[in-house]
Structure formats: structure tokens, C-alpha cells
């Protein structure tokens, strides 16, 4: 018979090892790397420490080696937030009514709808993004359709613009908004809506005062699931945005690739990580007293 503490250590070991090998180790490596000097042909110069990568985010060195403000990178961050935030808002506006609609169906219809929504996952997102390129390009199906109903006169000129990136983001992340909202609506007790009606609430008030607050955990989870990966998305802006460094993901990729500045890439990753962490912490603080939670 093993003692309790040995057993507990043994049971915890797989989790601890997994977390360490796949999370702490690579992250630590990246953190360390962000404080090293870049090597000339990529990689890093081990042992040469510097905070240059973090300074580089806001400043650049002019010809006299003076620091001057450089807002290019901040601009990319801002654009990323705008695109990811916009995509989150758009998926929310489309996703909530969809989830509500599905949740109000009977069980058979609900399962059918969920299946339909998960069908896109069966093919690779990369392939689906290429499909969007074909749809959105000049002379593509989108243009043909829009001109046939008279909305577009000449060329669509949408591919390789931020609009195309936004469309791609909304398309690929929509299921991640619908599913958590659906989950929170599906387990909701519809008797509560009846109770609201009974007490004199009309449809809008019942929605605002009962359905919306009860769906809030799902809405927040959906927003997180869309916002965070959208911020770090890489190949959607790469393909639909035309390879220009449109979003943070592309910028980071660039540093590890063509620019051969690994420490800067690592520093950018950490800047992004910080933002995401702050968002998560804010979320936890805000929803500590979520409905149904203890205390």
C-alpha cells in the first residue's frame, strides 16, 4: 500500500510533466530569448544579454545611434486589435441570434444545427481560407453575385485588404462564438422566461433582464475564444491580406523568418501574451460573482 502523499504525487505527475514540458519550458525559452542579442543569420547570440528587443518595439535607432519614436509596430498592434475586436463584435452580433434560434428548437433540430455548424471543422482552415480567396477575388463568385443584384458596378477590389481579413476572421471564428453561447442558452431554464412574462415583462424586457444576463458566461467565453486567437491569427491575414504585415501574427512570423530577429519576435510574442493575460484576469475579476457561482 503506497502512502497517500506518494500516491498523490504519482497521480499529479502526468499533469505536472505535461505542463512543464509543453508550457513552462518553451515559454521560458522564449522569455529568455527575448533578452538576447539577435544572431546575424537568425538564431540568437547566447550569453549576450540586452533589452534591445523591447526598446525596438517603440523606438528605432537613427543613423547617429539616437533613439527616435517609431510607431509602426504599435500601429500593427492597434490594427490587430481593431480587426480582432471588430471580428469579435461581428461574430457576437451574428452568433447570438443564431445560438438563440438553435436553442429554441426541439432536441432533434438542435442536434442537426450543431452538426451543421461543426461541419466546417472537417476540412482544414487553410483550405477554406484559400476558398475565400477564390470567392473574394476580382471576377470571383462574390463579385458576380453582388453585380447581379446591382450592388457592385465595377470590380470588387476586396481581396488583399483589411476588409477581406475581417471577413476571413468572422467566418473562421463564428463557430467559436455560437457554441459557447448555445451551451449557456441550452441549459437555461425556459421556465424563467415564462416567469418573466408572467410578471409582466414583454419580450424585449424578458430578453434583456433574463435571457441576456443568463447567457452572459457564454457570451464572455465566446468573446474570449474569438478575440484571443483572432489577435494572434497568422495565415488569414497572410492569405487574404496579401502578405503585407497586417497583424501581429505576421509580424512575429517575419521576425523569425525574413528579418532574422528572433529576440524581437520573442519580445513581440510576449507583448501579445501580456495583453491576453490582462484581458483574462480582467474577465476573472469581473465574473467572480457570476450567476450560480458560489459566494
Amino acid at each position: 500500500m503506497l502512502s497517500a502523499s506518494v500516491r498523490r504525487t504519482g497521480l499529479l505527475a502526468p499533469t505536472v510533466i505535461t505542463l512543464f514540458v509543453f508550457m513552462v519550458l518553451p515559454m521560458g525559452l522564449m522569455a529568455w530569448m527575448s533578452f538576447l542579442e539577435p544572431g546575424t543569420y537568425g538564431g540568437v547570440q547566447w550569453g549576450h544579454y540586452s533589452a534591445k528587443s523591447y526598446i525596438q518595439f517603440l523606438y528605432e535607432w537613427d543613423l547617429d545611434d539616437q533613439l527616435v519614436l517609431n510607431t509602426d509596430y504599435v500601429g500593427i498592434f492597434l490594427r490587430s486589435f481593431l480587426l480582432a475586436g471588430g471580428a469579435t463584435l461581428a461574430t457576437l452580433l451574428i452568433g447570438f441570434p443564431t445560438a438563440l434560434y438553435i436553442a429554441l428548437k426541439d432536441e432533434k433540430a438542435r442536434n442537426r444545427w450543431i452538426l451543421l455548424i461543426s461541419i466546417p471543422f472537417w476540412t482544414n482552415l487553410l483550405v477554406r481560407t484559400f476558398a475565400w480567396m477564390l470567392l473574394l477575388r476580382n471576377g470571383g463568385l462574390a463579385e458576380q453575385f453582388l453585380s447581379s443584384i446591382g450592388l457592385v458596378k465595377e470590380e470588387l477590389n476586396i481581396l488583399y485588404t483589411p476588409t477581406a481579413v475581417a471577413i476571413g476572421l468572422v467566418y473562421s471564428f463564428l463557430p467559436f462564438m455560437i457554441l459557447p453561447i448555445y451551451t449557456s442558452l441550452e441549459k437555461m431554464d425556459w421556465k424563467l422566461v415564462e416567469a418573466a412574462f408572467d410578471l409582466g415583462a414583454n419580450r424585449w424586457m424578458a430578453f434583456r433582464r433574463v435571457i441576456l444576463p443568463l447567457a452572459m458566461p457564454g457570451i464572455v467565453a465566446g468573446c474570449m475564444l474569438v478575440l484571443i486567437p483572432a489577435l494572434g491569427s497568422y495565415f488569414i491575414p497572410e492569405l487574404l491580406g496579401g502578405g503585407k504585415s497586417l497583424m501581429i501574427g505576421n509580424l512575429i512570423q517575419n521576425q523569425f523568418g525574413a528579418s532574422r530577429n528572433w529576440p524581437f519576435g520573442a519580445a513581440l510574442s510576449f507583448a501579445l501574451l501580456t495583453v491576453v493575460m490582462v484581458t483574462m484576469i480582467a474577465y476573472n475579476l469581473r465574473f467572480k460573482r457570476a450567476p450560480g457561482a458560489d459566494k
Binding site: 431554464d189 421556465k191 424563467l192 415564462e194 416567469a195 418573466a196 412574462f197 408572467d198 410578471l199 409582466g200 415583462a201 414583454n202 433574463v210 444576463p213 443568463l214 450567476p291 450560480g292
Partner: peptide
């Protein structure tokens, strides 16, 4: 007439209190 238009209130068998 819809439930919210009726001057009738219900004490539900399952209570149906608003959890939030």
C-alpha cells in the same frame, strides 16, 4: 392575450426564481 398582458401571476411549482 399574452401572459404579460394578463393581471394573473403564478407561483411556479419549480419556483422559477431568477438565479442572477
Amino acid at each position: 392575450t399574452l401572459p404579460f398582458q394578463r393581471p394573473i401571476n403564478t407561483v411556479f411549482q419549480s419556483y422559477a426564481l431568477f438565479p442572477h
